[in-house]
Write a protein that binds this DNA or RNA. Structure first.
Lengths: 155, 155
DNA sequence: TTTCATGTAACTTCATTTATTACAAATTAG
DNA sequence: CTAATTTGTAATAAATGAAGTTACATGAAA
């Protein structure tokens, strides 16, 4: 099964937009995400419909964030993307033809529902601001490492 | 995305086998699961490799359970099926090209890992015997309903 | 020795995501 | 005004992976 990576994509895009204050074109976003500009427009279009980003055409156009980073959770983005199916595993028939299948479906559905609830609850606790902060931390760490390496090389 | 329904399939098959004490042919199993006999053989073959079922060829051949219903958990079946990917959602690139992607992946991976752990923990707590008991309960309930309807129709 | 049934490889179908092409519409630079 | 830039969107193709199907070999029992 091919995994839906749109949530990952939009997070990547939104954080890049948060770094830039100028709008970024679909082409620029596509390049840094190794995908196609049309895919970017298609996916970002859903965020625009939800009022999280804005786009402008023509020269100096592109995408920019309009939402508050601290107010947007992964859960909201998941919803904005249409709440795609979370699991790659599922029941053979959703409408059971026999009682055996009914019992099997009930057990699996229950377990999946619990796992999905946990996942969405975790998503609801993570904001774009959290990710941006984590990025900043990694960035500082990387710079510190580079610096250390530079010192060592300079000996 | 097409969901992997093999776990659901083998549960259905195993419970049917548990009801029958005589072996069931791939064709019989396929018929009650609305699938193809070869698909049954392919999937059940993985359970045979794990020693959970046995198959016999020729007249009066077919599939039978060799494992103790109370000892087989959904978790074990999931493992036997090769631990297929649980989620239909995932990271765009598993090997991040930039720090932004690293931060995004880390957050998503963490949430998915927690949800998967919960799911597998639930799976580990459900045995085939539990499902068989649930089936028996449903069966009794259904019979009671049928009986009631019979009484009403007889008025 | 015929029939039944599994074992397995090879191939097709089907569903779904992502990629691509093509072109319309809008905006700005010159 | 016109050309360049950039989004908007439809339509189509490629890629992926599960499930379905065909074909035939193997083995067991009547």
């Amino acid at each position: 099964m091919k995994r839906d990576s749109r949530l990952s994509s939009v997070l990547h895009a939104l954080l890049h937009l948060a770094e830039h204050q100028a709008p970024m074109t679909s082409e620029a976003l596509a390049k840094c995400m190794a995908t196609h500009p049309v895919v970017v427009r298609r996916t970002m279009g859903m965020l625009r419909a939800a009022g999280l980003v804005a786009s402008a055409r023509g020269h100096a156009g592109g995408w920019r964030i309009t939402a508050d980073l601290a107010a947007v959770t992964l859960r909201e983005l998941h919803d904005v993307l249409g709440e795609p199916a979370v699991f790659a595993i599922g029941n053979r028939n959703e409408t059971p033809g026999c009682l055996v299948e009914e019992a099997v479906n009930a057990a699996l559905d229950d377990a999946f529902a619990q796992a999905e609830a946990l996942l969405l609850e975790r998503f609801a606790r993570i904001t774009l601001a959290d990710l941006a902060a984590d990025f900043a931390r990694r960035h500082a760490e990387r710079r510190a490492q580079d610096h250390e390496r530079g010192d060592r090389d300079a000996l």
